[in-house]
């Protein structure tokens, strides 16, 4: 498994080195979106408007969103591409089994996605003048959010495996993610995927709230639950794809 992780990690680095424009393109687009929203908001608020701590909170929310976005859709995009180009069947011939392999792939992708989000953060801090000071403990609720993100990613991956062209659906549902990440922390909302971890992280970063053990536990439980659900659905989809012969493209 460690070897598998290393080789997946290496494959990520290779494509980063060989196709750096894809990473840069991502940084530019995602930075630009936020910057334009920022300019628009400042224009509406009038000259001299002060965002105070709000800007930082919104920026953190945005970065969290981009990070979750990758966790959410990279598996599906990978599956769609590989079934089209015809490497998916070879990937399914792994003795590790497809699910462990895709889990390891996700894990190995974290690093490159981290670089991307880090670059976006740098660009946006320079452009907007926001100052982010990361409390290291924020990483924990962040992780809980990511777990849930991967869970949703596996659920979408199940659809991608069965129906192939789900690009549109992925695009639209990104905004649903935004809603989940901005949902308040209280009871009914904490059942939604991603919401409790995101609320906790937001509180810590924007209001300097302390890390509450109970809230963190809840966030992790939520993340694990949705991960388990996603894996379950994906497993079903793999079985169905193998029954119907859907692993190859066209």
């Amino acid at each position: 498994m460690l070897e598998l992780f290393l080789v997946e990690f290496w494959r990520n680095l290779l494509s980063l080195r060989r196709y750096p424009m894809e990473l840069l393109g991502g940084v530019v687009t995602l930075s630009l979106i936020f910057y334009l929203l920022f300019l628009g908001a400042r224009f509406l608020a009038g000259p001299g408007a002060e965002f105070g701590g709000r800007l930082e909170a919104v920026l953190v929310g945005y970065l969290l969103w981009t990070f979750t976005l990758f966790a959410y859709n990279s598996l599906s995009f990978g599956l769609m591409e590989e079934s089209q180009t015809g490497t998916l069947e070879q990937v399914f011939l792994t003795p590790y089994g497809p699910i462990p392999l895709f889990l390891v792939r996700n894990l190995a992708g974290l690093f490159t996605q981290g670089i991307l989000v880090f670059l976006i953060a740098l660009v946006l801090m320079a452009l907007t003048g926001a100052r982010l000071s990361f409390a290291p403990l924020v990483v924990l609720p962040f992780l809980a959010v990511l777990l849930g993100g991967y869970g949703l990613g596996f659920a979408m991956g199940a659809l991608a495996l069965l129906y192939k062209r789900i690009g549109q659906l992925l695009g639209l549902s990104q905004f649903l993610l935004l809603f989940l990440l901005q949902a308040p922390g209280g009871f009914p909302f904490s059942l939604l995927p991603l919401a409790p971890g995101a609320a906790l992280a937001r509180g810590m970063l924007a209001e300097g709230a302390p890390l509450e053990a109970k809230a963190l536990l809840l966030a992790f439980l939520n993340g694990l639950l949705y991960l388990a659900l996603g894996l379950f659905l994906f497993r079903k989809a793999v079985g169905r794809a193998k029954r119907l012969g859907l692993l190859h493209g066209y």
Binding site: R11, S15, G86, T87, Q90, T94, H248
Partner: peptide
């Protein structure tokens, strides 16, 4: 497998073989 590329187009032959070797259970 028929009608498949079977390998990654964006990797070199060496990289493909190392990748699939490990994915099939060899060590690096």
């Amino acid at each position: 497998l028929e009608g498949n590329r079977n390998v990654y187009w964006r990797l070199t032959p060496l990289e493909n073989l190392v990748y699939f070797g490990v994915a099939r259970g060899l060590c690096l």
